[in-house]
Nucleic acid binder design. Structure first.
Lengths: 198, 198
DNA sequence: GGTTTACGGTACGCACAAGTTTCGATACTG
DNA sequence: CAGTATCGAAACTTGTGCGTACCGTAAACC
């Protein structure tokens, strides 16, 4: 309390409601319009906020978007079904329960690609949309490896690429459409384990 | 000649030079600025052409871009080294000889994702950037399958996803940077053939 | 109560691109 | 040569977002 009072600058404090409204509107518009398509004007309208209230907090669109993304703490709880295959299925199932529509499934690719050239923003997107998921997957694979479900010495980073890449690629070329993403992901996994040698 | 003369409408014919300049400028700007970033103003400037000359040919940006892409007939000759592995290596080598910089390697992903929502344009991009390459790959894989280098009954469409997906995905999350794309592609291929069972 | 800063809302000037129109010159037909 | 449609260039209207500045009001401090 003392510290709070002592460090508080004079004048009216900034509104936490405005903070939340701005972040919420920004995230919504990112999904709907993408990074390039997002305008501060639109954020202002949707948040029901004055323009100065946004510019008081963020110097430009990139900073606004970075801050909004950093507020996005997907809980991302790891499953533990006892088998690697079961864990992977659970991960994919929860991932695509939270992104049931084609545009939502394309968001990851879209935001990443639109942020290329804006180094800071790309880094934030990559951390939030990519690395966090890879970290979870890595943990699952490590457990599977220790249980003897994978060939010893397997390169886990490569394996993550092999598991996620084909699904992301298929989303990309089919504009986010896919009948049963989970089934396809497991088909990829099974093929990877079996190998394709005659 | 007769047909040409008979069917030619009165007045000055449209300039083939202008056609070529417009298509060339459009393709250059697509690589540099992407689909959303391309403006007809910029095309006009780079092509050294009047604005009406563009609008006389194309009603809007989408039509302009579609026409320019359709002029893009990558020769795409198929290698024949005698082994599937050799063929794949040759394909990847030529693919990334023609796209040596990070922005060029990102162009496929970038254009596809930016054209989502513009159905016609997406279809043209997909045909030009994706299906043409898949068709070549499919032929190589089919030959390998017939030579007994792949397990009989292998789903070639899935295999194409498994080969291309991890590389495209890696380009995406690393903003087009990759030390040796060919080596990585072959690492993917070798892992796919061996399988990962303990 | 006086001071300070933030609030939502609005107006403004600036930049830039979309398209349309006009210009004199040019190329081809009949 | 007369007619027509093109050419590059430029002017023009319209629309939109950026970023700043200014309202009257509200919420905190001393």
């Amino acid at each position: 309390m003392t510290a709070e009072t002592a460090s508080r600058p004079p004048g009216r404090p900034r509104s936490a409601e405005a903070d939340a409204a701005i972040a919420g509107a920004t995230l919504e518009l990112l999904v709907e319009e993408g990074f390039q398509g997002l305008s501060i004007e639109a954020v202002r309208r949707r948040a029901g906020v004055g323009k100065a209230t946004i510019y008081r907090r963020f110097p430009d669109k990139s900073a606004l978007v970075r801050a909004a993304m950093e507020h996005l703490h997907a809980s991302l709880e790891l499953p533990d079904t006892g088998t690697l295959r079961g864990d992977l299925e659970a991960v994919w199932r929860s991932a695509y329960a939270s992104a049931p529509s084609a545009p939502q499934r394309l968001m990851l690719v879209r935001l990443l690609i639109e942020a290329v050239g804006d180094e800071k923003t790309f880094a934030v997107f990559r951390e939030t949309l990519v690395e966090r998921r890879r970290t979870g997957l890595r943990e699952l694979l490590q457990r599977g490896l220790e249980r003897g479900e994978l060939r010893p010495g397997t390169d886990l980073e490569l394996l993550i690429d092999l598991l996620a890449g084909p699904i992301i690629y298929r989303f990309l070329i089919d504009a986010g459409e896919m009948e049963d993403p989970v089934a396809r992901a497991m088909q990829v996994y099974d093929t990877l384990l079996e190998g394709l040698k005659p």
